[in-house]
């Protein structure tokens, strides 16, 4: 796209983001800057505390942008999918090994969520 020229502020910002970063270690706060002129600058990821799994969209504690806004809501609606498919093995018990009868007491988690057991493997 070298033949296109940025003419307003937003376009110039986009242009700057796609321009290879100057390898000036004093201006750049992270190691990305030390990687030289190859490719566009990688923006920092969301600020997420430890314990969150945020690689997937949606994630368990936060979504891929570091927020709770994109999660399946309410979580009870999605719980059995996570359970049957071992989708979130660190957050929800799995059907295969740890809790084969986790859902016996509650046919529909959205109504029976008070009967959900907390599992200590």
């Amino acid at each position: 796209m070298r033949h296109l020229k940025a003419i307003n502020r937003k376009a110039r910002t986009i242009d700057q983001l796609n321009t290879p970063a100057t390898p000036d270690v004093h201006d750049q706060p992270d190691v990305v800057a030390l990687q030289g002129n190859s490719g566009p600058r990688v923006p920092d990821g969301p600020h997420v505390p430890l314990g969150c799994s945020f690689v997937f969209a949606p994630g368990w504690e936060v979504d891929s942008s570091g927020s709770t806004a994109g999660l399946c809501q309410p979580v009870e609606r999605d719980l059995y999918d996570c359970y049957v498919t071992c989708f979130w093995p660190i957050h929800v018990p799995d059907l295969l090994n740890h809790a084969p009868d986790w859902t016996n007491k509650c046919a529909a988690a959205q109504q029976d969520w008070r009967k959900i057991d907390l599992i200590f493997p």
Partner: peptide, 18 residues
């Protein structure tokens, strides 16, 4: 400070808890 209030854990892996 940013506070994320989020969903519970239904499986607790930390053996030291019990």
């Amino acid at each position: 400070s940013l506070l994320i209030v989020t969903v519970p854990l239904y499986m607790r892996w930390e053996p030291s808890r019990t």
